[in-house]
């Protein structure tokens, strides 16, 4: 479903990824383990277009996405739940969830742009851009009106599903997101990501700053999301124990390079992983 090949990514002069490759098969849970600063978050940022890779390719469901912007990539069916949750902390829980579904309502149509933009010359791309700017607005409005009822229903369905996974969010609908507890905030972050009904969910350290009990609960829900809805999941973690428990495959990232790749079973048995990441 997702295929990352040999990507190099840098922050200005600081190179954070030196050619990372990984693959996420449809329907699976894949984890990327690594110490602080290994480049896990950078990998996710490169995949979702927040950081444009210097070289290498990224394919999502068979098409290149490494030249698309974050906004376009999101509407292709990929949700990125960033490190530190990044909630809209002054908005209510419900507003956060509504924003999660924004790509349904907005006209951002990554799919159609993808089809038209591939293999365009720079001049062609510019023409396309101008054309899109002119027609985009009108078409968005038209689509918005036509599909409104359908979108509304989809939205309600997604909302109910999120509330099924996280009943606490239904209770706290009107609460300001910044005043939730840490665990609740992580639930809201995941819920917000699910509102777009993604086929691929990217999670960046969901256990960060949470009590072990809460972490376990959240990982159970992640597993449930994968099982019952068939959402493919790529989860980045420092907490190797739990991650390997729910994941089918795992990668170990060390200073911007993939050091190990195997099934989670084998990784758990591997001596190197046990020593460095499982504390045994």
């Amino acid at each position: 479903m997702l295929k990352v090949e040999d990507i190099v990514a840098a922050y200005g002069p600081i190179v954070a990824l030196h050619g990372v490759s990984l693959e996420v098969p449809e329907g699976s849970i894949v984890t990327v383990l690594g110490a602080n600063g290994a480049g896990k978050s950078t990998t996710l940022r490169a995949i979702t277009g927040l950081l444009r890779p210097k070289s290498g390719t990224i394919e999502f469901e068979g098409s290149r996405i490494d030249r698309l912007s974050a906004e376009e990539i999101v509407s292709l069916g990929m949700s990125h739940i960033p490190e530190g949750r990044q909630l809209f902390s002054e908005l209510t829980v419900l507003e956060n969830l509504r924003l999660g579904a924004y790509s349904r309502f907005s006209g951002t149509d990554g799919g159609s742009r993808l089809a038209q933009r591939e293999d365009l010359s720079p001049l062609g791309r510019l023409q396309h851009k101008l054309f899109h700017a002119a027609t985009g607005g009108i078409r968005d409005v038209a689509r918005g009106i036509r599909g409104y009822r359908q979108r509304r229903q989809d939205f309600e369905a997604a909302l109910n599903q999120v509330f099924d996974y996280f009943p606490i969010l239904a209770e706290r609908k009107k609460q300001i997101a910044g005043t939730l507890s840490g665990g609740e905030q992580q639930m809201l972050a995941i819920g917000r990501g699910l509102m777009a009904s993604p086929r691929l969910l990217l999670l960046d350290e969901p256990s960060m700053g949470l009590a072990p009990m809460v972490t376990r609960e959240i990982f159970e829900i992640i597993r449930a999301i994968n099982k019952s809805q068939g959402v493919t999941i790529l989860v980045v973690e420092q907490n190797a124990n739990l991650a390997l428990e729910i994941a089918h495959y795992g990668y170990v990232l060390e200073t911007g390079r993939i050091a190990l790749a195997d099934t989670s079973e084998n990784l758990r048995k591997s001596e190197a992983v046990q020593r460095s990441y499982l504390g045994q």
Binding site: G12, G49, R52, S69, A70, E72
Partner: peptide, 26 residues
């Protein structure tokens, strides 16, 4: 060409600035 020219030069983090409809981000 290169958003953060050098560490001492650029003020705000420019990593998050370029959005899709901005020309010349590539």
């Amino acid at each position: 060409r290169a958003p953060p020219a050098s560490p001492g030069q650029t003020g705000a983090g420019s990593e998050d600035r370029s959005s899709g409809d901005q020309p010349g981000t590539e």
